[in-house]
Amino acid sequence: MPDQIVETKSLSYHFGINQVLDNVSLRVEAGSIYGFLGPNGAGKTTTIKILLNLLHSDSDKVYLFGKEFSKNRIEILSKIGSLIEQPAIYHHLSGRENLINRARLLQIPKIRVGEILKLVDLTESADKKAGKYSLGMKQRLGIGLALLPDPELLILDEPTNGLDPNGIIDVRNLLRKLVSEMGKTVFISSHMLSEVEKMVTHLGIINRGKLVFQGSLEELHKISKKQILIQASDPVKAKVLLSENGYPTDLLAEILYTPYISKEQNAEINSLLVRNNHKVYSLSQSQENLENLFLSITQ
């Protein structure tokens, strides 16, 4: 198996005169959970549709499993399970019938249908019409359909949409299990870092069609700026004081945030506050919240 399961080479795409993707070079390693993040309209779904050959890109731009897509479409698609936007399900058929229909199309033994229903926790409502399912159940059925062929690569576009917190945790655990125990690779898109932060091993952040970050979660942590967190007796006045003395400061939930420069500067800030009759309850260092970092990257 090649190291890079998904690779795009300077991928660009236009809808009419609008450039939707601009030189996007993705690299998704085998056995990883790759979180593809970006605000709404950044180009995530377009990228996913190109990865599935639903939108046609220039040749020699998209490689999956080490092979150029357009020349190896069927072979590549036979190794992928996908869920794009809302789950595509027949509402007049039951959950079980939806899975049976897909199993027949892909020549998958019927026994797998029962396994998938159990895996996505739909056994009890398997014979209910899918149109009567809740949003979360539809989403789970969509994930089940994607998992049915036991794919090597799972591409999921915002799979936690409509799921309650427990549902999100279930999906997270399921994806972790697929990677750690079954050696799958997962490519998952989301517009919320907090949703995928706890499960991904690698991240790609896209904004206005450009890939602005790509790397492991550790690498993202490295670029996040260190900050000083201060708790003082009068945070509003303390903020004004620090700002006037050249320390750009934010105040959030009674805590003052100012960029970390050096240990010496920490001492100077403390001294400045004390000299001006502020009581300093705590002064500590922390890395910038990843969500804030994500927002700052994508703004």
Binding site: L52, L54, I74, I80, E85, A88, I89, Y90, L105, L145
Partner: peptide, 18 residues
């Protein structure tokens, strides 16, 4: 319409079937 209604085209055309 059965495919339009279920937004199934994207799913059908991403299956390993010509």
């Amino acid at each position: 319409n059965i495919e339009h209604k279920a937004e199934m085209w994207k799913s059908l055309f991403s299956l390993p079937i010509p």
